[in-house]
């Protein structure tokens, strides 16, 4: 499924996001999306709706601990998204590149 991307490789229009697209994008990066991935993606989408951006790593972990599981840490996130958890979770969630990401 081909949807238009912005200059950073993120979905240009987040309302076009769907799970098939997310799976395809992740697969192209060598990631098979699991239940844990989807939980994280959904949490990031919710946070984006509330705050207008995806937060940096430590703030994201704090929120995930409160919302999903108190044992979540950076190692857990890096196992799911090895390149950059915040950036990759945002990308597969159909969200723009977080403002704090260089």
């Amino acid at each position: 499924m081909s949807l238009s991307l912005d200059s950073h490789g993120h979905l240009a229009n987040k309302t076009e996001w769907n799970k098939t697209w997310a799976c395809d994008m992740a697969k192209a990066d060598g990631i098979e999306l699991s239940k844990s991935h989807w939980q994280l993606i959904a949490a990031v989408q919710l946070l984006f709706d509330e705050t207008g951006d995806t937060p940096p790593m430590r703030l994201l972990i704090k929120q995930l601990r409160m919302r999903l599981d108190s044992s979540i840490d950076s190692r857990f996130l890096y196992r799911l998204f090895p390149d950059n958890p915040v950036r990759q979770a945002s990308k597969y969630a159909g969200l723009p590149k977080p403002k704090h990401c260089m």
């Binding site: 509330e50 705050t51 207008g52 951006d53 937060p55 704090k62």
Partner: peptide, 12 residues
């Protein structure tokens, strides 16, 4: 700042 950005600061 948008209202959501203010809310983000409060949330964090």
């Amino acid at each position: 700042w948008k209202d959501k950005q203010w809310q983000a600061l409060a949330l964090y």
